[in-house]
Nucleic acid binder design. Structure first.
Lengths: 103, 103
DNA sequence: TTTGAAGTTGCATTATCGGGCAACTTATTT
DNA sequence: AAATAAGTTGCCCGATAATGCAACTTCAAA
C-alpha cells in the first residue's frame, strides 16, 4: 500500500494500523484483518461506484436490484455470493472481477 | 494466460477457445466466458489443494466442513459466498484471497 | 481381481441471501 | 428553514447456500 504521509506529524495507514492493532502475526492484528477484508470489499464497490459518478440507486437499476441492497453490500451487512459480486461489477460498472489465491 | 504450445500441431488454450467459441465480444463467447469464470474458481481451489498435497477430506477438516461440500465447490455445483471462499483459503491453505475490481 | 482411498452426488434440514418495499436518517440544495 | 436527494435499516418471503450424511463411482494400491 502506498504511503500517504506528506506531513511529518502524520503516519501512513500501515503505521497507524501497526500501532493500533499490533504488528502482523499478533492475534489482535489477525482479528482486525478479518474485519478489514470485509470492509475492503464494500469499500472497493463504493469506490468503483463513485469513480463512475453513480448513486446507489443508479447502480441498483443497472444491476437489476435495489438501492437498499447496494447500501447493505457496501456496508458489509450482506455476505454476498460470487455470482452477485460478478453481476454488480459486470452489469453495474462494465468491469471485471479479478480473483486470485495466494498461498 | 501463458501459452502452452510446445508442439506445432497443438494450439494454445486461447486459440482453442477462439475457434470453439468465437472471438471476444461475440455473444457465443460471452456465454461461454461466464461459465468459464465459474469453472476457473473451482479449478483454482483444486489446484491450490493439490499444490498443498491435500485430499478433499483433509481440506474439509481444516476448513470445518465436509468433503462432499469441497467436491461441490471445486466442481462449481455451488455458488459460494465470499466469506466461505475466504474461509477455505485462509483456514484450508493458510493463504490469501486477492480481490480486485478492474474498470 | 480385490481392497482401500479419494472423489461425486442426492437428499433432508437449517441458515441466510436477494428482492422488494417502505420508513427512516443524513447530506445537499434551494 | 424547508425541500429534495442520497443513503440506511428492518422486515417479509421465496430461493438457495451450507451442513451433514450416506450411497455411489472412480482411481490407485496391493
Amino acid at each position: 500500500m502506498s504511503k500517504m504521509t506528506n506531513d511529518k506529524n502524520l503516519k501512513s495507514l500501515d503505521e497507524f494500523i501497526d500501532e493500533q492493532y499490533g504488528k502482523r502475526g499478533t492475534k489482535k492484528r489477525e482479528i482486525f484483518e478479518e474485519g478489514y477484508e470485509e470492509f475492503k470489499l464494500g469499500f472497493l464497490i463504493r469506490q468503483a461506484r463513485l469513480e463512475k459518478g453513480m448513486t446507489q440507486e443508479e447502480l441498483a437499476e443497472k444491476v437489476g436490484t435495489n438501492k437498499g441492497y447496494i447500501s447493505k453490500v457496501e456496508n458489509n451487512i450482506k455476505d454476498v455470493r460470487i455470482s452477485t459480486l460478478q453481476k454488480i461489477i459486470k452489469k453495474g460498472f462494465d468491469g471485471e472481477l479479478e480473483l486470485a489465491i495466494r498461498i
